[in-house]
Design a protein around this nucleic acid. Sequence first.
RNA 1: GCAGAGAUGGCGGAGUGGUCGAACGCGCACGACUCGAAAUCGUGUUACGUGGGAACACGUACGGAGGUUCGAAUCCUCUUCUCUGCGCCA
Length: 430
Amino acid sequence: MIDINLIRENPDLVRENIKKKFQDKKLPLVDEVIALDSEKRALQREGDERRAKRNSLSKSIGALMKEGKKAEAEEVKLEVKENNDRIAVIEARAAEIDVQLKKDMMSIPNIIAADVPVGKDDSENVQWNTYLEAAEKPFEVPYHVDILERLGGIDLDSARRTSGNGFYYLTGDVARLHSAVLTYARDFMIDKGFTYVIPPFMIRSDVVSGVMSFEEMDGMMYKIEGEDLYLIGTSEHSMIGRFMNTVIDESRLPITLTSYSPCFRKEKGAHGIEERGIYRIHQFEKQEMIVVCRPEESDYWYEKMWSYTVELFVSMGIPVRTLVCCSGDLADLKYRSLDVEAWSPRQKKYFEVGSCSNLTDAQARRLGIRFKNSKTGKNEFAHTLNNTVVAPPRMLIAFLENHLQEDGSVFIPEVLRKYMGGKEKIIPVK
RNA sequence: GCAGAGAUGGCGGAGUGGUCGAACGCGCACGACUCGAAAUCGUGUUACGUGGGAACACGUACGGAGGUUCGAAUCCUCUUCUCUGCGCCA
């Protein structure tokens, strides 16, 4: 959500930004907002005047009653009543405008960074850099489910019976590896100075509607029957909800947090949920990082955050590349975003394992996340950022494929061994 | 889960239908006093919106939503949370 003042003062900039994102169908919203906004202000002026009149007349009624002038008081009452009828009309119209204005403002995208490459969709994202050599294996790398099954690490058949498609049982050393990756990632972020948080895994509807649009909610969120609660799709939901409608003491900034949570997603209409495997699933676990900071610091934290993810993957020996999201691929709240992709020796291409975003003040404005600026004494919107540290089991696909040996065993890199009871490899059971 | 009590500014805490954005205290800022500081005294100190160059004016907000009333922090309904007691439970 951008500042409405920007639309009042510089509508061309906002239009230009919409065009860069190939959302031309949203261009009329700018004029609609300008019209609604001026109507709203006119209504507010009249409403304020009439309310001021009501207040003073009501006070005079009190005075008249004290003096015992009942008849005169009744006359004034009639006058107030008439005034109130008009106020009711004004307020009803103002409420209508507010709803429409909010809807429009929510769909007008955040102003994107000047250096974001212009492009229609994810096919026009731009590779930024690669880390570690994306080597091909001297043998054929099987589909990840086949690797997992040979290690005795997955049971999809039972999961389909108990829970349906899109769920899994991980077992034995593979399950342990899954936990080891998360624990290692947690400690990695703690070493970077982030504070570890375990948030609520369910949130109320008012938080949900704060962090996403109705369409996103419908496509992603599982609702608990008979309760005003939803399972979180990412810990970002409960982590950022924590700061909703608060004024943060400036001395607490920047707030740098790393959170763990299971994530639940319907993946309604998404490609791949029908695919056999653990690439796109209804339940996974994720270590996340979020930062709430002063506006002038968000560029700095953005660079830090994605580089931590890269560093983590490299430390586990997994080749990755960074990909700058082009204008058309950026979600509406984002100022800029960078995907981290891991190398798949089987498919001989990279696939997404994480995404780092700077939302500037767009999310904070929508959720009322502010801090008191000690220099100006004013409350200002903070900047918010989020990034994936690591999200298994998807990440395990890259792990297994890259560390698979010709004999079918899977190599465990040094950094994970202390979380695996010292094991150096996982050995196939068949 | 049941019963009772409660939710007011950065904090504590008055206020039970009219001049209450809110007593009083703490904190904070500025000023006076002082060589400087403490103490003391004085002044100021909620947020958001609209109008205005500004001083300022007006409006809205006393957990949240709705209602009664000419007028609501105050009365009514629903709801969320907190505390106390009982119950239940990893």
